[in-house]
């Protein structure tokens, strides 16, 4: 068997991927503590909010990219990294929300509830996070077995969540939408690749 075999996957690829996914967070912490070249600037809460949000989105898109890249390259083992990547997306999304709740809002629940109910972009974010948490909890082998066929249906929610997250990003930028547009294009491509693939493999039993 070519690289990586099962052992290499477990002992090399997965730990390296784990560290890679954690690296942005480590970078954030170093800057927050003033231990890296630059710090988080005059508004570290805002900087943390943007940074954790963008990495949650990026890792979500990487998660969605794993299947099409596997199909293009034939690297079946990539699938073994999908759950970890998705869980890291949840990790950054959780940091994003905790930063919003505690430093940003100071746990002012009246204001937080008003935000969720009245700011459409925050409503979208809250929905997306709820979905991500549900997928995170049910990502274990045990839940996979327990839910059977319904597990796959549930985890297709990731497509909806990704759309919500890009939309959430789009709605909160002030005017220049270049950056969310780039992510929207990437997401469209990732979702589109699934439609194309579906047609081509329609008659295979195990697409």
């Amino acid at each position: 068997m070519s690289f990586p075999n099962r052992r290499q996957l477990r002992r090399i690829v997965k730990p390296v991927w784990f560290m890679a996914c954690l690296a942005p967070f480590a970078w954030l912490i170093l800057r927050a503590l003033g231990l890296a070249g630059d710090d988080l600037g005059a508004d570290p809460i805002e900087a943390t909010q943007d940074f954790t949000g963008i990495w949650a989105l990026r890792l979500l898109l990487v998660t969605l990219a794993i299947t099409p890249v596997r199909r293009l390259t034939g690297f079946i083992w990539l699938t073994q990294l999908r759950r970890m990547t998705g869980l890291f997306a949840l990790f950054y999304a959780s940091a994003h929300v905790l930063n919003y709740l505690v430093p940003d809002q100071g746990l002012n629940w009246a204001a937080i509830i008003e935000d969720i109910l009245e700011r459409p972009f925050i409503t979208l974010g809250a929905l997306a996070l709820t979905g991500l948490i549900a997928l995170g909890i049910t990502s274990t082998r045990g839940w996979q077995v327990r839910l059977g066929k319904r597990w796959l249906t549930l985890h297709r929610l990731v497509y909806v969540i990704a759309i919500l997250v890009v939309w959430h990003f789009w709605w909160q930028v002030k005017e220049v939408i270049t950056e969310p547009l780039i992510y929207a294009v990437i997401l469209t491509a990732l979702l589109g690749s699934r439609l194309i693939k579906k047609k081509r493999v329609r008659f295979k039993p195990d697409a």
Partner: peptide, 21 residues
């Protein structure tokens, strides 16, 4: 309010991680 966010509160710049709105 701004159509997309609240104008009821603001963050005073300069308080680091303790500058809640």
């Amino acid at each position: 309010d701004h159509p997309r966010w609240s104008q009821a509160r603001e963050r005073p710049i300069g308080g680091g991680f303790f500058a809640s709105k």
